[in-house]
Structure formats: structure tokens, C-alpha cells
């Protein structure tokens, strides 16, 4: 054969014309959907901040307002269930804005044929979770869809909370030099759920980390108001949370791979399936951006709290590579921690 081999290539697909599961993954597809479909029609400077919660002044008080929908399979999993998750998820979105939760709403979309006893267990779990926090579920709604149109139970919760005097948390406040704190090991929720997925099943004692974070946040803010921003790395994992902050704040973030705690169960599953724990979902962890002078005391406060017992310093904010998250490997090299286009898929190669 003479000359280079003529390799050829396919053309890309036409513009995405349908919703695929990746649009709900919290990665790049979700961001595109928001940018291309919703934001052009919803005219709000508060929404345009794209925080996990809307924070606004109302008659002298600063309120936080947020909504979240929960579609999890299976409904009951090791370490939690859709009911408690629906309460914690919204409470955590409020907490990431520094707010203590006041009231929740609960909307249910039920699939025809669902056993009432199942729904009773979900409701009981929600009630217990709300009592523990405490937060009141003050209004709600129920709709039923035909069999096959839903997956048993979908829940939406909306929450309203009060931001204490002097607390100001926003990605816009993050600046170079700030330190990045992580409240504990990553990936527990995503891997616990994956273990029960058809076609992938594996056995593990790992439980979801599903938990409320408002107490941890209050403990952190009690020692310093120089916490600049927080995120709970849910869908899309730690990577998405860091990339969101980097792009909103226009800063770079460098993290140390060896500093990021990962349990043996999560590691094993990720090695087997070819997944990266940085992209696996959490439901009871937070990542905080703290002014350097306050980092030690905030970290100590986190470690004194049960939800932050394993908190660590994982990295720092820099001005050298804006809007890029870099990870330093144990080999001293760096690589990009990107946002994924969609969900991580188990791979064979």
C-alpha cells in the first residue's frame, strides 16, 4: 500500500430533537436544555444566576426558594427511599444557599396500579424525615397517570427557607486563593442505586449517603461567615458541582486526586464498570469554597459534625486556568475534570 490509508468518518447526527435520559443527568446536556429551551422564555435575573436555589429579599427578610423532583429506581434502596430523599434533597438545596428550611410542599405523580401500602411507606418515611429536620410539609398535590406512563411514584418537593442575617453564599463570591472543602467520601448514593439496577447488579453493604445537610451548614456558618459558596454534588457528581462553580465564578479550580476520599465499595464498583467516582451521584455531601484564613476553623467545625466527620481539604481556587477544573494525579501530572455530556455508562473497553 502506498501513502497513508484513507480512513473515513461519519457525519454527526442532526440537532438533538428528542429528550434522552442524559438531559436529566446534571451534566452538559442538562445545562444545554436549560440554556436553549427554558431561559429564553423565563425572564428573571434571579433565575439567570442559576443557583441551586433562588435567594431574594422580601419585606426585610432574605428568603431561599427551591424545587426538585425525584425519580429513583428502586423506590426503596439501602440507606434510604424516595420519600426521605425528596425531603432531604430540597432541604439540601436550601441549605446550599445558607438557608434553614421553613416549609415544604409535596406533589405526587402516581402510576395506576401502585399498591397503597407502598405509598404509605413512602409517606411515612417523608413524614419522619420532615419531623427530624424539622420542617413542615404544608401543602401538596396528587395526580395519577395510566399504567406504563410513570414508574410507581414520582415526587416533587418545593421548599422555602430563611437565610440568616449576615449569611451570603454565591458562586459569584468565589475568588482565587479560596480553598475547597469536601464533607466526606464520594459516590455512595450512585453506586448503592446502581448495585440494584437490572443487568448490572452486584452485591455490596454500601448504603446511600442520603442525609440532610442543613445542620452541617449551620455548624460551618457558626464558626465563619467567610464561606463563599456551597454545592451538594448530586447528579453529575463532584465534577459537575466543581465545574458549575468554576464557570459561574470565572475561576479555575485545582484538586488533588489523592485527597478525595472514596470508599472501597465505590472503588470496586467503579473499577469493575469503568466509571469515575468524580461523576457518581451523592445525596448527603457538600463541597464548600472558603476564604483561606477561615478554612482551618470551618474544616474543624465540619469534622465535629456527624455529616462532616470525614471532611477534607481537596483543592484550591486559582486564576491560572479560568473555568477549568484540573486534577493533580499522584504522579504529579494534571488532567482536566470535565463535565460529561450525559450519564456515565458502564464500559467494556
Amino acid at each position: 500500500m502506498s501513502g497513508p490509508i484513507q480512513f473515513t468518518c461519519p457525519l454527526p447526527l442532526a440537532v438533538k430533537d428528542r429528550i434522552v435520559l442524559g438531559h436529566g443527568s446534571g451534566g452538559r446536556l442538562s445545562a444545554e436544555l436549560l440554556r436553549d429551551v427554558f431561559l429564553p422564555f423565563f425572564h428573571s435575573p434571579i433565575l439567570n444566576r442559576l443557583d441551586d436555589q433562588a435567594v431574594f429579599e422580601f419585606r426585610g427578610a432574605r428568603l431561599a426558594f427551591t424545587t426538585d423532583s425525584f425519580v429513583v429506581k428502586p423506590l426503596f434502596f439501602r440507606g434510604g427511599d424516595i420519600g426521605s430523599l425528596a425531603v432531604y434533597g430540597t432541604v439540601n438545596d436550601l441549605a446550599m444557599g445558607g438557608a434553614s428550611p421553613l416549609y415544604l410542599s409535596a406533589g405526587f405523580i402516581l402510576e395506576e396500579g401502585l399498591e397503597i401500602e407502598t405509598l404509605r411507606r413512602v409517606a411515612e418515611s417523608m413524614g419522619r424525615a420532615a419531623d427530624d429536620i424539622p420542617v413542615e410539609i404544608v401543602t401538596g398535590d396528587t395526580k395519577v397517570v395510566e399504567k406504563g406512563s410513570g414508574d410507581g411514584v414520582f415526587i416533587n418537593t418545593t421548599g422555602i427557607g430563611l437565610v440568616p442575617e449576615g449569611v451570603r453564599l454565591s458562586p459569584a463570591l468565589v475568588r482565587p486563593g479560596d480553598l475547597v472543602l469536601l464533607s466526606g467520601p464520594i459516590g455512595d448514593h450512585g453506586i448503592a442505586i446502581l448495585a440494584e439496577r437490572e443487568g448490572i447488579q452486584f452485591s455490596t453493604d454500601l448504603a446511600s449517603d442520603s442525609a440532610p445537610l442543613h445542620g452541617l451548614v449551620a455548624a460551618m456558618l457558626a464558626v465563619s461567615l467567610d464561606v463563599r459558596a456551597m454545592r451538594d454534588p448530586t447528579r453529575g457528581g463532584l465534577s459537575s458541582a466543581l465545574n458549575e462553580i468554576a464557570s459561574r465564578a470565572g475561576v479555575g479550580i485545582t484538586i488533588e486526586e489523592s485527597a478525595i476520599p472514596v470508599r472501597e465499595e465505590v472503588r470496586g464498583a467503579c473499577e469493575m464498570l469503568g466509571l469515575d467516582p468524580l461523576y457518581v451521584a451523592n445525596e448527603g455531601k457538600l463541597v464548600a469554597f472558603v476564604a483561606p484564613h477561615a478554612a482551618q476553623s470551618v474544616l474543624a467545625a465540619m469534622r465535629r459534625h456527624p455529616q462532616g466527620h470525614d471532611a477534607t481539604l481537596i483543592g484550591a481556587v486559582t486564576d491560572t486556568h479560568p473555568e477549568l477544573v484540573l486534577l493533580r494525579t499522584p504522579f504529579g501530572t494534571t488532567r482536566i475534570v470535565d463535565m460529561l455530556p450525559g450519564d456515565q455508562l458502564p464500559r467494556i473497553c
Binding site: L13, I19, V20, L21, L273, L345, P346, R347, C349
Partner: peptide, 18 residues
């Protein structure tokens, strides 16, 4: 899993699923 995103001429398996 990793075959689902690979585009064919006009579609991919994710879109078939969708």
C-alpha cells in the same frame, strides 16, 4: 453501555430508547 451513544447514520440507540 458504551455502545448506546455511538451514532449510526441517522440515530443512536439512546434515541431508539427515547
Amino acid at each position: 453501555g458504551d455502545m448506546l451513544r455511538v451514532p449510526g447514520s441517522r440515530s443512536d440507540l439512546f434515541r431508539v430508547k427515547a
